[in-house]
Design a protein around this nucleic acid. Structure first.
Lengths: 213, 213, 213, 213
DNA sequence: AATGAATGAGTATTCATTCAT
DNA sequence: CATGAATGAATACTCATTCAT
C-alpha cells in the first residue's frame, strides 16, 4: 500500500460542505443547458466544479435529483420577490407591466438560468413530475404576475377589457421566446437583436393594443 | 439515401417497400418529439414502425442521420407554398398576416410536425449544423413571410412604420410558443386554451398596435 | 467511421440462440461457486462463455436473474427424477436409502452443481425470495425423499420407530456437509476422504441405529 | 492491532475506548453473517457500532483485516477449554461425546458466533489464507475432540472399532449443519426443530451405531 | 430486402479507503 | 482519538451499430 507523497500546494481535497451544493448546481446548470440532460456527463459536472465524481453523490442522490435541485433552486425565490414587488406597486399598470418584464429579463432572462426554461421544455416528457412542478411553481406563478397587472389596469380603466388568459400569454410569449432562442437556435446565428430594445417595441405595441377607447 | 426503384409487379409483402423511409421517419418523429433525441431508442422506433432494428440501417446511416432526415422532411415544400401564396396575394396586408398565420398553424402548428420545432430547440446545442439548417431554411424563411407582409403594409400606408425585425418576432412569438407548449409543459396540464381564438386575439391586438395614426 | 477488416477465421459473432442460455449458465455456475455472487464479474462470465457482456443481457435481465436461472435450472429436474424412482422402488427400504443417497451424490454432489448449495447458503440473506424457492423446491423436496424411505421402512417393520424429522436430517447432514465442504474449507486441505466410502460408513451406522429390536 | 494503554483517569466520553475493537467486531460479525462479506458496507458497520467510518480504520487496516479479526476473535480460548475438559474427563466415552456436543452447541452453536462458520464457508474461496487458519485452528481442532472421544471409547471396548475419520465427521455433520442452517435457509422458514432434542436423537442413533457387539 | 443476435464503448452509481480538521 | 468530506477505482447495465443469415 503506497501512500502517495502529497505536494505542498495541492491538497487532495478540501472541506467545503456549505459551498459545495451550489457550486455543483452551478456547474450542472451550465452543462445541462448547453448539452441537455442526457448528453451531460456527471464526470464533466464534477470536473467543472473541481471535485471528483463521487463527491456529487454526497449531495445528490442521482443525476435526476441533481436536475431537480438545479431547477428548484434556480427560480422560486425570484418569483416570490416579484410577487411582493407587484403587490406593493402603486404606479400605473403600464409601468407595472414594464417593471415586471424588466425584472424578469434582468434577473432571469439575461442570466444562465434562462437556459432552465429551454431545459424544461426539452425534458418535460421525460420528467413529468418535475415538469408539473415547473409548470405550477414557475410558469403559472410567473404568468400570474402579468395577469395581475392586466387585471389591475382593466379594473382602473387604464386598459380596455381583454381576454385575460390570452393577453397574459401575449405579454409573456416574446420574453420566453427570446430566452429560449438565446439558448438554442440563436446559438448558430449572429443576432443583432437587442433584447431591451425589442421589449420596448413589444411594450409599445402591447400598450397600444390595450389602450382603452 | 437511395430509395430503390420499385419493380413492376408488387407482391403483397413488398407493397410497402417504398413507403418505408417515411414510415420510419413518422415513427421517429413521434418518439424524438416525445422523449428527445437521446432518450429515444432505435429499438422503439423500429418497433413502432413494425420493422426490425436492422432495417433502420438500410435507410439511414445513423441515429443522427435519422434525426436530420426527420427534420428536413418535416418542412419540405410547405414554406415555398406559403411564399408563393404571399407573393400572389392581392388583399390587404392585415388579411395577408391573418392568412399566413392561419396556414402556418393549420399546416404545421396543429400537426405532429410542430414537435420538430421543440426538437430543434432541445437539440440545437448538440447538432449545430442541423440547427443552422433549420434556422436558415425554416425559421428564417418562415419569419420572412411575416416581414414581407409587414413591409407591404407599411409601404401601402396600412401600417405605421415599425421596427421590422421586432415586429416580425412579435408576430411569430405567440405562434411558436403555442407549438412548443403543446409538446412540452402543456402535456402536464389540461389547458383550456383554444389556439384559434388565441390567435384571433393576437391579431386583434397586433393590428391595433400597427394601425397607422 | 472505420470498418475493421474481418479476419477469415474469427467471425465477430455466431448465432447460437438455443445453446446460449445454458452456455451462459454453465459459465455463471462455475464462477458463482468459485467466487461467490458479488465477487463474480459479468465480464468474466461472458468471457468464459466466449461472448460479450452485452450478450448476457439478451438472455437474462440482470445479474440476480442469472443467479436465479442457474439455481432453478440446476436442480428441479433431478429431484423429480429421484421422486419417481423412489415411488416405483420395490426393494427394501435400506436399499432405497442407499440408492437415493447414491443418486444424490452421483448426480449432484459429485458435479459442479454441488456448489449451488454452498452458494445458496452464502446468499440466502441477500435473496430471500430465491432462498425460499430453494428451500421449498430443493431442500424440502430432497429431504422428503429420505422421509419417504424412512417412513416406508418403519411401516414395514424394517426400521424401528424414530422421530422422522430428526432421522431425515441425520440422513442428509453428512451428504450436504460433504458437498459444502468440497466447495469451501475443503479447498484448502488435501483431504483423503473418499466420499463413497464415507457414505458407506454413514449408511452402516445409520442402519444399525434404525434396526428394529 | 495495537490497543492503546488506557490512561488512569477515565472521563465519561472515554469510557469505551478500550471496548471499541470488540464493539466494532460485534457489529461486523452481525453484518458479515447476515449479508456476507461483499454485501456488508463499512458504513453500516460503523453506524451499528455508533462510530464514524473513519474510526474503523483506527483499529483495522482494511475490510479484510476486519473480517480476519472477527473470525480469529470468534473462537479464542473456547476450543482450548474444551480440550482441557476432554483430557481431564473420567466418565464413559458416551458421556464425553454428549458433553462435548453439548458444550459446542451451548457455547458456540447457540450464539451469534455460529454465524462465523457460515461466513467462512461462504468466503473460503476468496480468503484462502483465512480459510486455512479457520480449518486448522477451529475445524480440525474441534473435530479432534470427537476423534479423541471415539478413540478413547474404542480403546476401552465401549465402542466397536470404526473408521475414525468417518465417525468423527458423522458426529459433527448434524451439529455443523444445524449451525449453518440457522444462519441461512433456516431464516426463511419457521422451523419447529429443537436443536437439543435433535442432538439427543443424533446421539442415540450414533451410540447404537457405535455399540460393540 | 429484412432480420435479430451479437458487439463493446460509454456512463451512472457504489463503496473501501484516505486524511485535513 | 475521532470525524466525515473527499476520492477514484471498480462494475452493472444500456443501446447504437454491425453483419451472417
Amino acid at each position: 500500500m503506497d501512500i502517495p507523497v502529497k505536494s505542498a500546494e495541492t491538497p487532495r481535497w478540501e472541506r467545503r460542505k456549505e459551498a459545495r451544493p451550489s457550486e455543483l448546481m452551478d456547474a450542472a446548470l451550465e452543462l445541462f443547458v448547453e448539452k441537455g440532460f442526457a448528453a451531460t456527463r456527471l464526470d464533466d459536472v464534477a470536473k467543472r466544479a473541481g471535485v471528483s465524481k463521487g463527491t456529487l453523490y454526497l449531495y445528490f442522490d442521482s443525476k435526476e435529483d441533481l436536475l431537480k435541485a438545479v431547477v428548484r433552486e434556480g427560480y422560486v425565490a425570484r418569483i416570490a420577490d416579484a410577487e411582493a414587488y407587484a403587490r406593493a406597486f402603486t404606479g400605473t399598470s403600464a409601468e407595472l407591466l414594464r417593471d415586471i418584464m424588466g425584472m424578469w429579463w434582468t434577473q432571469v432572462g439575461a442570466t444562465p438560468m434562462a437556459g432552465i426554461t429551454k431545459l424544461m421544455i426539452a425534458e418535460a416528457g421525460n420528467f413529468p413530475e418535475l415538469a408539473r412542478f415547473y409548470h405550477d411553481e414557475v410558469m403559472h406563478r410567473g404568468m400570474g404576475l402579468f395577469t395581475y397587472a392586466l387585471q389591475r389596469g382593466i379594473a382602473s380603466g387604464e386598459f380596455r377589457p381583454v381576454n385575460l388568459e390570452h393577453a397574459t400569454r401575449l405579454c409573456c410569449a416574446p420574453v420566453v421566446m427570446t430566452m429560449i432562442w438565446k439558448h438554442s437556435l440563436g446559438l448558430c446565428t449572429h443576432d443583432e437583436l437587442v433584447p431591451e430594445a425589442y421589449f420596448e417595441t413589444h411594450l409599445d405595441m402591447l400598450l397600444r393594443g390595450l389602450r382603452s377607447a
